[in-house]
């Protein structure tokens, strides 16, 4: 090992000498002296590099991290709360919408649905008959009055269908009962004066505060029914 190589090895890493360097150092007193000098220098360098570390730094580092992760948790919590609140509001609105809005957009659909809903519960040739007096008593809830009977009235009842209070009259028809509904005016349902589907025909009559709807099957003369109703019904103020 030549001198330059030796010096380079010592200078580069005085504390981790390889076997060659140690052997060279053992043979030569001046080399040993040089190695000692550099080791001393290194010790001084080490001392000089040991600048004081602020006492508070360790705690400050831990504190900062704790605060940072606390902030993150708080933000997460807030986000979850906001999410839950949003879901609750949307849920509430939807429930409201479904409960208080009509499933039907016009009188015809409403009346047909009502007819189908109660179809079959009253037979056309049923025995019971409702008197005109009783009918007019019920009509008084709508401030209405019939001057004479329109036919054999099988049933006269208030019913609440799809959230709307109405008077449902069932008359004996030619082949199947004729349904007459007296319903209060409703802004959500558009007035349709004539409507039909495969089985039924219907007509509606609009009055000041109420609508009257007649629904019967295709053998029935709905026009005649309509005419009779408009001639016999009278509304008190």
């Amino acid at each position: 090992m030549d001198d330059l190589q030796f010096r380079r090895a010592i200078y580069a890493d005085p504390n981790n000498l390889n076997a060659d360097t140690i052997a060279a150092l053992e043979q030569d007193a001046s080399k040993k002296q040089f190695a000692n000098d550099i080791a001393l220098l290194d010790e001084r360098i080490k001392q000089a590099l040991q600048i004081p570390v602020p006492d508070y730094l360790c705690n400050k580092l831990i504190l900062r991290q704790t605060l940072a992760s606390h902030q993150v948790q708080k933000r997460k919590k807030r986000f979850h709360l906001a999410l839950a609140a949003s879901v609750a509001i949307v849920g509430g609105l939807m429930l409201n919408f479904m409960q208080f809005s009509s499933a039907y957009t016009n009188l015809g659909d409403y009346a047909l649905a009502h007819v189908y809903y109660e179809e079959g519960s009253i037979a056309n040739n049923a025995n019971n008959q409702v008197s005109l007096t009783l009918l007019n008593k019920k009509m008084s809830a709508f401030d209405g009055n019939f001057s004479k009977s329109l036919g054999k009235l099988l049933v006269a009842d208030y019913c609440r269908f799809d959230g709307m209070r109405s008077l449902h009259l069932v008359y004996q028809g030619i082949t199947s009962p004729v349904n007459v509904f007296i319903v209060p005016k409703n802004e959500q349902l558009t007035f349709t004066s004539a409507f039909n589907d495969k089985q039924y025909y219907g007509n509606a009559l609009g009055f000041n505060d109420s609508n009257i709807i007649v629904v019967g099957d295709k053998n029935e003369s709905i026009g005649q029914w309509k005419k009779n109703i408009s001639e016999t019904v009278a509304w008190s103020i």
């Binding site: 380079r8 200078y11 580069a12 890493d13 005085p14 220098l41 290194d42 001084r44 360098i45």
Partner: peptide, 16 residues
């Protein structure tokens, strides 16, 4: 790296 370490110590020794 070793060369730089050598130069670093060499320079420090010279100033000392």
């Amino acid at each position: 790296v070793m060369t730089r370490l050598f130069r670093a110590r060499n320079q420090l020794k010279e100033v000392l």
